[in-house]
């Protein structure tokens, strides 16, 4: 499903990170497990209404 996962950074901001480059393993408590498969609204660069 491609490697991106919503990961909470040290700055508290969620980013979609590539496990192939930024992983391969992430700290479990930094992964937003319940949001896998979606883009949480507060993600860095999350879709803006009106843009593609």
């Amino acid at each position: 499903m491609t490697c991106v996962l919503p990961i909470i950074g040290d700055d508290g901001v969620t980013r979609m990170l590539r496990s192939c480059v930024d992983g391969p393993a992430f700290r479990g408590d930094k992964v937003r497990w319940q949001d896998i498969g979606q883009i949480p609204d507060d993600t860095y660069g999350a879709p803006v209404p009106g843009n593609h």
Binding site: M1, T2, V4, R15, M16, I36, G37, Q38, I39, T43, Y44, G45, A46, P47
Partner: peptide, 8 residues
């Protein structure tokens, strides 16, 4: 841009 959700 965060990009789309998976699967991509």
């Amino acid at each position: 841009r965060s990009g789309r959700a998976t699967p991509r």
